[in-house]
Design a protein around this nucleic acid. Structure first.
Lengths: 178, 178
DNA sequence: GTCTATATGCTGATAGAC
DNA sequence: GTCTATCAGCATATAGAC
């Protein structure tokens, strides 16, 4: 009875996830998804009451798991940072497709070669920091240092520049293990 | 003669930057920009041959400065990581508005509360890592650790999970100064 | 569950007057 | 430099038959 339920719904979500990831959420129309499924747009509306509901259905699991992870971590606020970081990593890894979807949403600017540029810069900066073809350990150090530095510029935009710069660079250097 | 040139063009770019930042590039139409300027759409086409050219004109300075920065850094490949990191920070800070524009492009998903969620999680994780209202030095350490960890999940998606996790967590812990 | 047909609105873009 | 008028295209969404 409950077997072989609405197969189309699941297929639609899978196709949507793929298209969202490849070409961005906003520039993926219901038409694109319907075409890929070999059905028509109105058929999609049988499974999802709106476009937004379709998007939400894909993102929902990440949100729920995230809330659960944080709640658990806060409940046992005693454990060491390592456990916390590992858990956060695992959580993100489990949802890496949707996380990637978030990041690739920058695809809107990728047309301008911006994202490619920034990734290229980071790659070359990483070479300067840890050399060509570094062992994974050093490569991740460079990524943490550069990625973390970027985040600080945005996160602490309201703080005094010099103080942020000094603190951020210090943390990045620690991440590099220098 | 060259004074008081095309004021409208500069105003259009300023308005566009603001709207792009507030509501994302894709969902900002020429109509929105024209309305804000108190002119009509066709008037915009006098200053920009296409929508894409308008977007590009805003992003171009970042790209040019970035290329220049990398070229210089590579030319003097001798200096220590600290100088490099500081330079990279300064470069990003000078263009923080456009950098923010890139990041806020995630606004497409912000409607779903996703970005707010992730920022909220990070804030709360930072509390667990470095406590409530930490000094700026610790706050940045947490940001580098969490931001860098996130980046690693994506950047090394093709590498063995366990190895990436170990390396990324190690670098994050160093960034934390623990 | 899926279809055809259609409503309605907004998009980027152009033609041509002033 | 800015306007009015207009285009074709595509979007989300709905009505109703099968």
């Amino acid at each position: 009875m409950s077997r072989a339920k609405s197969d189309t719904k699941a297929r639609a979500q899978a196709v949507a996830r793929e298209l969202f990831l490849r070409q961005g959420v906003r520039r993926t129309s219901l038409q694109d998804i319907a075409d890929r499924l070999g059905i028509t747009k109105p058929a999609l509306y049988y499974h999802f009451s709106s476009r937004e509901e379709l998007v939400r259905s894909i993102v929902q699991p990440l949100i729920e798991d995230g809330d659960a992870f944080i709640a658990e971590a806060e409940a046992r606020a005693d454990d060491d940072p390592r456990v916390l970081l590992e858990g956060y990593f695992d959580f993100q890894f489990a949802h890496r497709e949707v996380v990637a979807l978030m990041i690739r949403e920058l695809v809107a600017l990728a047309d301008l070669g911006l994202v490619a540029k920034v990734l290229d810069w980071r790659t070359r900066l990483a070479v300067l920091l840890v050399g060509e073809d570094p062992p994974l350990a050093d490569a991740t150090r460079a990524t943490v240092a550069l990625g973390g530095l970027s985040d600080c510029v945005m996160v602490f935009a309201d703080q005094p520049v010099e103080a942020v710069r000094a603190a951020a660079v210090a943390a990045a250097l620690d991440a590099l293990g220098r």
